[in-house]
Amino acid sequence: MTPEPTAPAFDSDVEAAIRENHPALITYITAGDPSLEDTKAYVEALDRGGSDLIELGLPFSEPIAEGPTIQGAINRALEAGTTPAGFFDLIDDLETDAPLLVMTYYNMILQFGNSEAPCASNSNSEAPRASNSDAASLRNEPTVGPFVERAAEAGLSGIIVPDLPAEEADPLRTACDEHGIDLVFIVAPTTEGERLDRIMSQVSGFAYVQARLGTTGARANVSTATHESLSRLSDYDVPKAVGFGVSEGDHAAEIIEAGADGVIVGSALVDIIADHGAGGAPAADALESKVRELKRGAVRGGDATTDEEQPEPEHP
């Protein structure tokens, strides 16, 4: 086969966004906090400020990987009535330079597209209170296909699922491959050896390097675990982006200097949204300038790396 000179350098939008904008800034906010209309304005501000990728959280009622900041955002979004259908309508409407990813919990993916009424609605409390056939007839068939299909149709480029380890990910990996969507996995400070190999063989787009043990949330410094994780990952040819606790431009600089291809910032942005309350341009402006600060920090870290090492260009 003759190589096409004009062929895209990467078959993944997500990987391209990181490689071509190296060092990359990935930003996160929760969709529907405080409303989906506000989210639209905020995503546009993140895009204007220079985000290279944007993650949108689809809220789930039991966010076990999140710290208090993003839990708060998810509660506000759920109280505002955010649904998967409304979320996808928002994605349909958005036009951004940065590719978009969805971050949500596995049950939200499994239940999407259920046509049945909620459980129990067709059970009859007058009926005998013991029966096997009732239970069988009430079974839904949770499956990942409809969610991934709708995500692809809306133009999402990737999916991140914080409660889906590689061991359980085969169905979603297959569906993502069918629809040309990246599936990003989280690599924790505790991930080593065979499990690390397994994750790195299943990941696409980028590896989400968890900077420290625990939950999401802005922190005052960069952990030593970040440096250790990045050195464990240095032999794998997948872009690495570091998240969990990154809140300032200086963190971004230090992380890029330590060998990351990108930084992920969430809680620091969600804090801005929470501080501004419902609606409006002030929050969007504040988000945009925070994103500029973070991107400048990342670039500063990238310059330091280039000065020291003069690496080969990453790609033609």
């Binding site: 789930f60 009622s61 039991e62 076990i64 759920l78 649904t83 998967p84 919990y105 596995y106 049950n107 939200m108 499994l110 239940q111 999407f112 259920n114 049945e116 009424a117 909620p118 459980c119 129990a120 059970s123 209170r129 029966s131 009732d134 239970a135 009430l138 079974r139 839904n140 068939e141 949770p142 409660d163």
Partner: peptide, 25 residues
């Protein structure tokens, strides 16, 4: 849950759950 729940993932396991059609617990 056993009498009226539907299948889904909560607290680390696939099992029967009381959940909304969208998947909120």
């Amino acid at each position: 849950t056993l009498s009226t729940g539907t299948d889904g993932v909560l607290h680390g396991a696939m099992t029967k759950l009381l959940q909304s059609r969208e998947g909120q617990i």
